[in-house]
């Protein structure tokens, strides 16, 4: 098996408060994302999962100070790259889907134009060709009437439709090797959450993408993800295949997390 696409090794760091005091938030975080898999990073709010994911793209909050660790992407340490080299990786090789898709779309341009602009940024070509590819991408994420939808503005999209458009942008227009999804289904209806997760699973399998899904909801992990990294209070608690984590959790924290989402067969649930 080839080396993992993404490897995080011993990432540690703290938040610096205005008076200079350091609050440690990440403790020796290490995990790997093998090529062609969907790896979920699961944890509660404040567990450091989003911070870790944002660090991959170098968009951690400015108050975060790294004290140790490496983030190896395809064998290169992203933390040592110059800003210009990092820009060449963003969008081209790693792209991200944010939690609030409607806020991530620019309100003054049509959705189609935004996707087409990014297509031209990465692949060049004429505006009409870019728009054609955009409409194909919107169709591929099951947006009905993509020709009409492409001419609409973000405020005319529902949350679920906007998230589909963002996935079309991040996964299909950018054509990255690694797709990071930061809580992509939080704030959506349960039925729409399921449809979005199914879409992500399909895209990853059909296009051979590698994806890293950040979520606090174990419920969305079970069917889509191959591997799970459980985080708590800035530490990696447990890492394993989805099946292993769900059926044979080794750590108490993982068991409690499963019990909270009522998915795993934990002793408490059987007793209840």
């Amino acid at each position: 098996m080839s080396s993992p696409l993404l490897e995080i090794e011993g990432l540690s760091g703290s938040f610096r408060s205005p008076n200079g005091a350091l609050t440690p938030v990440l403790h020796d975080v290490s995990f790997a994302v093998p090529r062609g898999t969907v790896t979920a990073i699961v944890g509660e709010t404040g567990s450091g999962k989003s911070l870790t994911a944002l660090s991959i793209l170098g968009i951690q909050p400015p108050t975060f100070q790294r004290s140790a660790g490496r983030i190896l992407f395809d064998g290169r340490d992203l933390l040592t790259l110059k800003p210009e080299e990092m820009r060449g990786i963003r969008g081209r090789r790693i792209s991200i889907v944010f939690q609030d898709a409607r806020a991530a779309l620019n309100p003054v341009f049509t959705v189609g134009r935004q996707l087409a602009d990014v297509h031209r940024l990465h692949h060049g070509g004429s505006a009409s060709r870019a728009m054609k590819r955009t409409i194909e991408a919107l169709r591929a994420v099951s947006i009905p009437e993509p020709e009409r939808r492409a001419r609409q503005y973000p405020h005319e999209f529902s949350g679920g439709m906007a998230q589909r458009a963002m996935i079309a942008l991040a996964a299909l227009v950018c054509e990255p090797e690694l797709l990071i999804l930061d809580e992509p289904t939080t704030g959506l209806d349960v039925t729409i959450q399921a449809a979005i997760m199914e879409l992500i699973g399909d895209l990853v399998r059909e296009r051979g993408l590698t994806a890293c899904l950040i979520t606090h909801d174990l419920g969305v992990v079970a069917e889509t993800c191959d591997r799970v990294v459980v985080m708590n209070a800035g530490r990696v608690v447990e890492t394993g295949t989805t099946e292993a984590i769900f059926t044979r959790p080794r750590q108490d924290y993982t068991r409690r997390l499963l019990a909270a989402s009522q998915l795993g067969e934990t002793p408490e649930m059987i007793e209840a």
Binding site: G91, A104, P107
Partner: peptide, 20 residues
């Protein structure tokens, strides 16, 4: 704002984010 962040994350240069 998120859309400025998103524009940077798809690989726009800083002047493109600012002016476009």
């Amino acid at each position: 704002w998120p859309y400025a962040e998103a524009a940077r994350m798809v690989g726009n240069r800083s002047w493109q984010v600012a002016f476009r």
